[in-house]
């Protein structure tokens, strides 16, 4: 072909392709499979109805997740919390420190894999679900969808600095929870 034509998939194919990860985000938003199913179904119907507002060639995933996030806010009667200042929290590397203290040295074994192998998917999800709502939402979008901080900021209608601090702080809290779970797991 002489010209390179960027392939634009049909709307319905784009939609079908984002549902799996969107379901996982909905699960973390709602923390409940029934509510997650309701939320995803509502978002799907809304997306089909609002088809004309999607600009072909733009980021479909972000467009769909915006619809779903707005619906979740309404479902959860979410009140916009005050914008927290960018605390710029530094990585505590808590798990790494604990592993070293426990004698799991990176030179000999793979401590991160060893630790996570002790926990199943439900435990990891539960640790995330324990986080405050704003951290949970930012982290779910960060870990499950391939979105930049800027895209997440637009989606959650907050400054990028807020997203950054929620993700970074969320990870610090998450590491402490995961370590506590590992200690409790026989």
């Amino acid at each position: 072909m002489a010209e390179s034509v960027s392939t634009i998939r049909p709307f319905e194919s784009e939609l079908a392709m984002v549902l799996d990860t969107a379901y996982r985000v909905a699960l973390r938003y709602t923390r409940n499979p029934d509510d997650a199913a309701d939320l995803l179904q509502e978002a799907t119907l809304r997306a089909l109805k609002s088809k004309d507002t999607f600009v072909p060639g733009s980021n479909f995933r972000a467009w769909f997740l915006t619809i779903m996030t707005r619906l979740w806010w309404r479902m959860a009667k979410k009140i916009h919390t005050e914008v927290d200042v960018d605390a710029g929290e530094e990585p505590e590397v808590y798990l790494y420190q604990q592993c070293r203290a426990a004698g799991l040295h990176p030179e000999t074994i793979d401590p991160a894999r060893t630790i996570l192998a002790k926990l199943d998917a439900d435990q990891v999800s539960a640790a995330i679900d324990d986080l405050p709502e704003d951290y949970r939402a930012a982290l779910a979008l960060n870990l499950l969808e391939n979105l930049s901080y800027q895209e997440i900021a637009e989606l959650l209608e907050c400054p990028i600095g807020t997203v950054r601090s929620r993700i970074h702080r969320g990870r610090n809290i998450l590491q402490r929870r995961l370590w506590a779970m590992v200690q409790e797991t026989p």
């Binding site: 998917a121 990891v124 999800s125 870990l143």
Partner: peptide, 12 residues
């Protein structure tokens, strides 16, 4: 590893 565990949840 965290991402992999989170990706295990599947839609009914």
């Amino acid at each position: 590893e965290i991402k992999a565990k989170m990706a295990q949840a599947t839609m009914p």
